[in-house]
Amino acid sequence: MEKRVVFHSRTLPYLLVAPQIVITLAFFIWPASQAVVQSVLTQDAFGLSTKFVGLANFEQLFADPHYLSSFYTTVFFSTSVALLGISSGLFLAVQADRVIRGAMAYKTLLIWPYAVAPAVAGVLFLFLFNPHLGMFVFALRSLGYDWNHALNGPQAMFLVVIAAAWRQVSYNFLFYLAGLQSIPKSLIEAAAIDGAGPMRRFWTIIFPLLTPTSFFLLVMNIVYAFFDTFAIIHQVTKGGPGDATNIMVYKVFRDGFVGLDLGGSAAQSVVLMVIVIGLTVVQFRYIERKVHY
């Protein structure tokens, strides 16, 4: 798509794009290329000399059991967050779509948690599940179940998954409600006249028609779980106990800033970049990008 009528100027267009381009080059393209360069270099123990090592950093990375376990942890974490968030969002959206009285109020009350920062969501759940004073921990103890996510890996994973999914429920709800409202009522009515009950109508008509929305949300939730949950991990578990919640984004940070392993951290950055590029391609090529509200 191109404009038929345009303005003519030799210098003005360059001045207009300049700020965006300068910032992109300085803070995006240059650092990213640095990461790629560093990923094929290695430094000696004192940081005095660097030498080219080819793909050695990557070979080391993929042979490292910690990295592989971080990879599986990330996959498990993001799948759980996506499934939990999407199914709750869909369930609530279906209910809200049925409501006539008070629809606006329900919508507002279900949307606002999205505005809460992941870092804050982390703190909220950290407080509820604090081993010393958390309300839920107290309740669990009185039932005879001991909770300490600082020592128990699966408990820590459970905690970060619900903290991360909590906020996404609103996001998924918003898009599913939009999707539901764009389904023609005549389809549902026709099915009802033919004698299909609410459950049957949902599974044979509504759910299939929501497939584009579901696919879009699946990709967006995975992107969220991969990258935006850094704050939750950092607030709640710091990747621990051990490596139980050490997702890839957190590992890059921990190895680079705390461990100061530049080559290894850069190689991890490059792997993450490849993942984002893959997700972006999926997002742009295969997703029906018309979500009506």
Binding site: A32, V249, V276
Partner: peptide, 13 residues
């Protein structure tokens, strides 16, 4: 391209 380069993947540089 900036879409594909969130801060998280280029932290150190």
């Amino acid at each position: 391209i900036t879409l594909m380069l969130p801060v998280e993947v280029r932290i150190l540089p």
